[in-house]
Each structure stands twice: as structure tokens, then as C-alpha cells.
Design a protein around this nucleic acid. Structure first.
Lengths: 361, 361
DNA sequence: TGTCACGCTGTAAGCGCTTCCAGCTCTGAT
DNA sequence: ATCAGAGCTGGAAGCGCTTACAGCGTGACA
């Protein structure tokens, strides 16, 4: 900074002195201008301006016993998913005049300390995404501060916000069945949070209704590497089968690979990786294997084939969470879980035909 | 929360009383345990535990005149780019024992107030990405608090951090020239920040060295919609040309569209949209038009053709910024700008051949 | 046995705000 | 002319912590 370090940081006292008023008046000038006479107000504001006065939030927080800040704890973000969640939350919070303090929590190393640190400086906290191992932490925090849980497994007594999962998964699976798929697999770690758990339930419902048995389930984290692994696995199995069948009728070959003809994946990243690896190996997607994602990443529509996935209004979810958290802080009581809608987005990876596009003359 | 609201929030006094010591001892127990006798320490910690004591950060901040928090101001995030930047920053900050408070600043509506708010509660602030209009804000903040500028236009007297742009752009452009491209366009709003400006410089250098004239430049924001617009524009121009040439030799047609045979784009999103639209219209990319992106989005490699782009270690950038900011707060003096390397990632959209991949037996 | 140093602890003075309360100055009604 | 009340303002008491500073008991040493 230019000089900040040299001159002492101005406080309400300096401003008061320069404006020729008491600190009480300066305080009022900032918190409720209508309480001070116009002339006085001008003088105060002017003094504050020339001194570059910035009210010390800590002092205010101490005096009013409110920090006017909300905490967010997230797993180490990367996906656009978390970013969107965070943006929705921040925008809503700042509209309520609340700051947002961010804590990234690597599920591997709990860093319990950093949570304590966070707690001390916020009026409430939102736990977003990832669940399971963290549930204890959530519970402890909830004992001490207003708390909400967003897009993650629910915790007893903590207000929960999540996108609708079950119905969308069911719808998605039904769609695959309509495409004639019969051996539909599922990719996702169930205990990792009820989000994926719910999707699995919807998936099972659709299968049951159609009188189909669930096909293989892959218990994998929803990341690129898992997708690659799964693809390799499928390819290996298929190769083996072919070797075994050597010379025999390749009846099983027209559609299907390794005994599957469709795969419902936990998110787009996973689906993308699987499709890419399979396609590179010459497997026709969706011809032999339909693959669906979840999240509707920006790029999903640019893939070949276009990725059929599920769109959730994650920003809205974040915003709702921030608003409820603010309400809880103001003394509102807990309410029932809130869900936002999800929409299945059909593109080509499920077997749908591409939209016709005008060609270059 | 379960009960928090009912029982009064425990303070250092309650803990002291319950442990049978003075508040000074409790304070020491938390800030420097070695200053307290082991037996006493145990008693204090135990009392704190049963009372669920959480030290009030505000009070501490007031007493030590340090909030132990860093501010980050970002434009309304979405891209993975910002998310990565933020993650790098947060991780580094938390390793230094500093919290991160986040402020999203929509360049459209300045919300100057929210910046003031932020200033009051942090020891230093990092301005990330997007520049131009915000420069004044940065300057004002820098007058009052230690400040760094990350991945954005530089401001006099403010420590800057950015990814190398010029050399990478030059290298990328040279690569296109090696592919035989001669009419290479550029997409990016120059005044929007020196990032893209630097890339433009590198691009020009490469052209000049090769004795080529720069082709058309599209002054567009780096978002999906712009990409679509540009693609439509190219298609329209091309259609017109074809109509004009009707019957004449289609010599210009083998490679090139609308007078261009390559396009260097400001980011991946833009490039993706252009490629998608053109491909859908039957234009061969990279056959007729090579297109490159910037950022190496996760999905870049999954596109068809694979997107040639530039990879920057954005997380590293964020981390460096956090560390420097912490140093500035501790009284270090400003230093020269820091840049992290960028690497050109060649895939197929520039005209390179795809990697061979083992096919399914 | 006295002295001193050392380790541990408590007392108390802030840190920069908010806000209750009281007091002052006007105005308008009586 | 008097007084009630409204409108503004200042005094002062905290908010929950940190951190000199001083005091105490103890053991080492002379």
C-alpha cells in the first residue's frame, strides 16, 4: 500500500475530533444517518473521507455481538458445481448485508482447528457438498451456531437444502429404458452422501417398475480418473469375452459392452471420461453403450456425442441456503428440508438423435 | 442449532471461572500453551470443552489490531478458472492461519459499499481477474490496506501476479504458422485487461516474425454467446462469398472460411462454442479453420477435435498471491510482479494429428 | 539462612465500536 | 410567558479478548 503503514489507522475518535463531534455521533452517522442533523452528517462524512476512515468490523462485532458474516465450508473445490453454489450463496448473503468467509475442508485431513477458527468469526455456517465423514463436525457446529447443510447428506436437526435427485434419476433411467436399454449400470459411491444415494433409489425405482434387474454398480468417486478406470475395466472384460467366444456367434456384440448397454453416472466429469476412453477404443457411444452424466456442465453440450445429463439450479440452492441461514441467525426456527428442481437434459449420449442444424450452404 | 440460542454464549470469563483461574490464564492457554502449567492447562481445556467455548475472533482482532483474515474480490465467478484461483489462495492462506473472506463484485454495479465492508474485516485484500473499470477501486483500497492484484491488469504500486501470456501466445501462434496457417484471426477484448492484451502482443510478434499480416480481430467478451455470434458471422460471410463466386472456381474453399484459416481465442469457452457451431454447420475444424483456446478447461481434451489451448497453473498463482499478501501485512515491502509459466497444450483443433489409442480388439 | 532467579498466575488497562441515558436547544401549543 | 415534547448530541459503560506488569512460591546457590 502507498502509506497505510506509516500513518496510524484512523479510528472513530480521529473522525469525531476532526468533525468536531463526539464518537457517538460519528457512529450514528454511519449506522443510521437519519439520526443526525444534515450539517453534522456532512461534517462527519467529510472528515471520514479525508482520513480514509474504515470502520473496524471487529469492534462493531464485539459491541453488537454479531459479526455479520456467514461461514461456508466446502471440500477443496474445483468443479463448476461448487463454484456455482458458492456464487449463489455469496450473492444472496451480500444482498442481506452479510459477508462470506470461506473455509476449504479437505475430507482427508480434518483440520478441525480451522473450523473453530471459522466459528469464532461468523454468525452461522453452511456446510456444502460431501458428507459422511464430516457429519460429526456438522453436528458439533450445529450445537454452537445456526447451521445449514447444502447439497449433502442430511444431519439430524440441521436444515437441509438439496436439489431433487430421486425423481430426476428415475426419469433419466426410464428414458434409457424407452431407448430399449435393459442392462443399465450405475456409477457412484452410495455412502458418500445421500445425493447419490437418492439418485440410486430413483434409478432402482425405474428399473423395478420396468421389471428389470439392476446391472453392475461401480463404487467410485465422481472424478475423471474413476471414469478412465471404469472404461478400462469394461474394455478388459469385453476383450476377455471376445476371446472366450472366439469364433462363436458375436450375438452379444451389436449393442452392449461387458454385459451393459447403459450407464448412469454420478456426474458429467465421470461420464465424459468414460465416453472419451470408450470412443477412442472404437466403442460406439451411445450405439453400444448409452452413458448419462449429472450436473449439466457448460461443456456437456459440446461433446460428441452431446451428453445427456441433469441440470440443477445450484446457484438458487446456494441463495436459499444463505437466506435461511440469515433467518436462523435472526431467531427463526428450523424448517423442513428444501429441494430445488432438477431437469433431465436430453442430448445424444442416451441414444437420442441430434438436433438438426442448418448446414453451410 | 440445538440449544445455542437458549444458553448465553460462553466467554473467556465463564471458562476462567469454571477452571478456577483468571481470564489471562485462559487466554494464554489458547494462544501459547507453553506459558501455562500442565495441570492448569488441562483444567482450562476441559472447562472450555464442556462449555463449548469458541473464542470470539472479533474480540481478539480488536485487542491485537489484526483480523487474521484476507479479503478476495472476484467478479461473479463461474468458470473453473476463478474457482481454481480461489482454491489456491484459500489453501495457502489457511496454511498461514488466515481466513478468507470473499466478495463478489459485479463490474456492472460497483457496490462500493460492500468493498468498504470487506476492508473493515480483513488485513489485506487480493483483487482477482477482470480489470479496467475496477482500477480505481483497487487504487483506493491499496491506499488503505496491503493489496495484491492477481490475474488482472496491473495498477501502479500494487504487487501483481499473473500467468505468463505473451510468450505462450507467441508460441501458440507460431505453431499455427507451422501448420501452414497464414490468415490467423484473434478473438478478445483488448482493453479488458492486460492479460488478453499481452496475448495479443505475443500473437502479433509471431505474425510479424513470419512476415504475416494480422487477420481480423473480434472484439468480444470471452463467453459462450460471443463464440456463437462469431461463428454465425463467419458462416454468413462465407455464404455471401459463395453466392458471389457462384459458379466460379472454389479455390478459396479447400481451407479457410470467411478469409480466415485459424483463430486464436481468449479462452476455451469461446473456442468451444465456435468449434461446435461451425462443426454443426459442416465446416471442418481444424481442416478449414484451426481454433485454439486458453485455460485448458478440464473438458478441453474431451472435445472433438481435442482443443489446443494453454495451461496455466492458476492455483499456484492464487497461492503465491496469498503468501505475498501475508508478507505485506507483516511489513514486507512491495516487490516486482510475479508471473507463473504457461504451457501450450497441443491437441487437434490446431491441426495436429490425434494420439493413437489402442482400439478395442 | 538469605538471596535471587525463574516459572506461573492475576490485575488491570486498553483495543474501537454501540447504545442507553441524560441534557441541551428549539418549536409550537397553551 | 411557560412548558411539553421533539430533535440532536455527548457521556459513559460495556462487548470479549490480549498483554504489560507485578506478585507469589519454589528451588538453587552462596
Amino acid at each position: 500500500m502507498a502509506n497505510g503503514a506509516s500513518s496510524p489507522v484512523p479510528t472513530i475518535y480521529q473522525v469525531a475530533e476532526r468533525a468536531g463531534v463526539s464518537i457517538a455521533t460519528v457512529s450514528r452517522a454511519f449506522s443510521d444517518p437519519s439520526k443526525v442533523a444534515p450539517r453534522t452528517l456532512d461534517a462527519v462524512l467529510e472528515a471520514a473521507r479525508v482520513l480514509r476512515y474504515v470502520p473496524a468490523a471487529a469492534a462493531r462485532a464485539l459491541a453488537v455481538r454479531r459479526s455479520k458474516a456467514l461461514g461456508v465450508v466446502l471440500p477443496h473445490i474445483d468443479g463448476p458445481y461448487y463454484a456455482e453454489l458458492l456464487v449463489g450463496f455469496e450473492v444472496a448473503a451480500s444482498e442481506l448485508g452479510l459477508s462470506v468467509v470461506l473455509a476449504l475442508l479437505n475430507p482427508q485431513e480434518p483440520r478441525h482447528l480451522s473450523v473453530l477458527d471459522l466459528l469464532g468469526r461468523v454468525d452461522g455456517v453452511a456446510f456444502m457438498a460431501r458428507s459422511g465423514a464430516q457429519d460429526d463436525t456438522v453436528r458439533q457446529v450445529a450445537d454452537v451456531r445456526p447451521t445449514v447443510s447444502v447439497a449433502r447428506g442430511q444431519v439430524e436437526g440441521v436444515d437441509a437444502f438439496y436439489a431433487e435427485n430421486r425423481a430426476a434419476a428415475r426419469q433419466l433411467t426410464e428414458h434409457l429404458i424407452e431407448h430399449g436399454r435393459r442392462r443399465i449400470g450405475f456409477v457412484g459411491r452410495l455412502e458418500e452422501g445421500s445425493d447419490i444415494g437418492q439418485r440410486h433409489v430413483g434409478y432402482l425405482e425405474a428399473l423395478e417398475e420396468a421389471g428389470l434387474a439392476p446391472a453392475e454398480r461401480f463404487e467410485k468417486d465422481p472424478v475423471e480418473a474413476s471414469g478412465l478406470e471404469i472404461a478400462e475395466m469394461l474394455l478388459a472384460v469385453e476383450r476377455e469375452r471376445n476371446d472366450a467366444d472366439a469364433g462363436a456367434a458375436g450375438a452379444d456384440d451389436a449393442t452392449g459392452i461387458a454385459g451393459l448397454d447403459a450407464l448412469v453416472c454420478g456426474n458429467d466429469e465421470l461420464a465424459m471420461a468414460i465416453i472419451s476412453r470408450l470412443t477412442a477404443a472404437g466403442v460406439d457411444v451411445p450405439g453400444r453403450l448409452a452413458v448419462t452424466g449429472w450436473d449439466d456442465t457448460v461443456t456437456a453440450r459440446y461433446l460428441t456425442p452431446g451428453l445427456t445429463t441433469v441440470r440443477q439450479d445450484v446457484a438458487e440452492l446456494g441463495a436459499l441456503a444463505a437466506q435461511r441461514l440469515a433467518a436462523l441467525i435472526d431467531g427463526d426456527t428450523s424448517q423442513s428440508p428444501v429441494t430445488v428442481d432438477s431437469n433431465v437434459v436430453l442430448r445424444q449420449s442416451c441414444g437420442c438423435a441430434p438436433d438438426p442444424v442448418p448446414a453451410l450452404a
